[in-house]
Design a protein around this nucleic acid. Sequence first.
DNA 1: GAGGCGTGGCG
DNA 2: TCGCCAAGCCT
Length: 355
Amino acid sequence: MFSFITSNLLEWYSNHARQLPWREDPTPYRVWISEIMSQQTQVNTVIPYFQRWMERFPTVEDVAKASLQDVLLVWEGLGYYQRARNIHRAAQKIMTEHNGKLPANVQALKSLPGIGKYSASAIASIAFGLDEAALDGNIRRVLSRLFDISDPINTAAGEKRLWQLAQDQLPSRIAGTYNQALMELGALVCTPRSPHCTQCPLSQFCQARLLGVQEQRPIKITKSTIPHITVTAAIIEKQDYVLITRRPMNGLLGGMWEFPGGKMQDGEDLNSCLEREIKEELGISISINQPFGVYHHAYTHYRVTLHAFLCTLVNGDKPKPLQVENLRWSKISELSNYPMGKIDRQIAKELLKQL
DNA sequence: GAGGCGTGGCG
DNA sequence: TCGCCAAGCCT
């Protein structure tokens, strides 16, 4: 009834599937959150975030009723913050348009913010038992090796071929288990580097291994190297308070709070950069008093070296949100109430230590 | 449809 | 230190 490949895969999965919190009670809501959190993120990273999320937001309604600020706080550290903003919006849509329950079909799932082709298929198959093929990074890699696909996977042609393959291979009635088994195999055995072929239940069927090219699959067109930029940030102090600003809702770290500043331009030094940025964003002049720290961080598209300075306002200037979503004077002890990215949270923690 | 979007781990 | 990679989606 099943192919040999499917039989071997399912047998392996029944013995090696990890116990994951969302697998213990795979309700549509829990599967949805687990899938969004798992986008571009390894399972071991997701687990504690998933647990905290479910404690804080046990139901779709709890998410829908929460403020975006609270949603981002729970998400802080997980990255790709648009995912959190999309979950928030989707939860409200589910309340108003779907009676508080996730819709049980791919098309309606895909119309929710943050749910694309993969996630819709994954939720449909895992949570609702529908016969939907899913194609994620793991399955792309496994299929590329199993069938020795030499088309680059990040092209339209390669993509089309893999989706077709995933659909052709899909067994009926057990798509959810099958999809998870393929992903689990990719995560644990058929790994990107140094795949554990001797432990693989599919090695006898693997055409890439037969040819000894498993480490060259999948083929991916690589992009150019990422730039390195220098940025400055101002820790503007006033008695027990510091000034923080909220980033615009779209783009990098959208909706997160930070210490204001920005990118250094050609011909600038650190001080002139910081003075200009603060003037542009807040319409005020500052006195840059002393260096606070230097921070290195790698984002997806560039590396950053950030120089933070302790500053004070000059004369009676009142900061205005000219180029920021919002601004706030926060007590240092209350900075943990504001969602921040990695670097700014580091700065906030350092400030708290020095109190 | 090509590029933007976080963070952590690993060789 | 550096590049790559990880259960993708959106514009």
